Amino acid sequence: MADNVNKVTQDTIEQQRALLLSLRSKLVGQRHTLPYTIYKDEEIENLLVKQPHTIEELSKVKGFPDGGKRLKGFGEAILEVFNNTSKVKDIDVKCENGELEIVTVLRKMELF
């Protein structure tokens, strides 16, 4: 897969970075763990370079092996960041009955 960074504006990359950091921060809070156990800053930068849009593409990014906990646990939320950057306002993490639920918060649409 070719790196898609040339097709993405710097503003979009900054939005994606902010969303990935927000997701990590909320996962850290829910899991009561350290940030690097969710994903490291280096892995965020790799994600921003690779711009994955499918689980298969994400599984090729260092730190997100096919069948791994990260891919299964919050891979879809990471893909949402890259597939719908302009629509995603934030990502929320809730815990119900010991199960993590990751919810995408969308921006309000303006019709006119």
Rank of each mutant, 00 (worst) to 15 (best):
A77R: 03
T9C: 08
A18W: 07
K7H: 14
T85W: 01
I55L: 15
R24N: 10
G63S: 06
K108Y: 03
I55A: 15
T104E: 09
G67Y: 01
I102A: 08
Q15G: 00
K94H: 11
L100F: 03
G98M: 08
E45C: 05
Y39G: 06
V93F: 00
S22C: 07
D11F: 08
E76S: 15
E14V: 03
L19M: 09
K60W: 02
P65T: 07
L47I: 02
A18H: 07
I38G: 11
V8T: 04
V49W: 05
L48P: 01
H53Q: 13
G73K: 04
A77I: 03
P35K: 06
Y36C: 06
V61Y: 04
L100A: 04
K60S: 09
L48D: 02
L34T: 15
N6P: 07
L48C: 04
E110A: 12
G98R: 07
K26I: 03
V61G: 04
S22N: 09
V81L: 07
T9S: 15
A2G: 12
S59M: 00
V49R: 13
G68D: 01
N84D: 11
K60V: 02
E80N: 14
L48K: 00
P52H: 04
F64I: 05
S22V: 05
E76K: 15
N4A: 14
E14T: 06
P65G: 11
L19I: 02
Q30E: 15
K62N: 14
K108W: 04
S86A: 13
K108V: 11
E56F: 12
V103Y: 00
R24H: 05
R70V: 00
V28H: 05
P65S: 07
K50G: 08
K62T: 12
K72E: 10
N6C: 10
K72C: 09
L19H: 01
E80I: 05
K62F: 01
E110C: 10
N97P: 00
K108R: 12
V28K: 04
L27R: 10
V105Y: 06
N84K: 15
A18G: 06
S59E: 01
N97R: 11
L27G: 06
E43D: 12
E101S: 07
R31L: 14
G68L: 02
K94F: 02
T104F: 02
D3K: 14
I44E: 00
Q51M: 11
G98L: 02
V105N: 08
K40N: 09
R107H: 13
K26L: 06
V81E: 08
R24D: 07
N46P: 00
V81D: 09
Y39D: 05
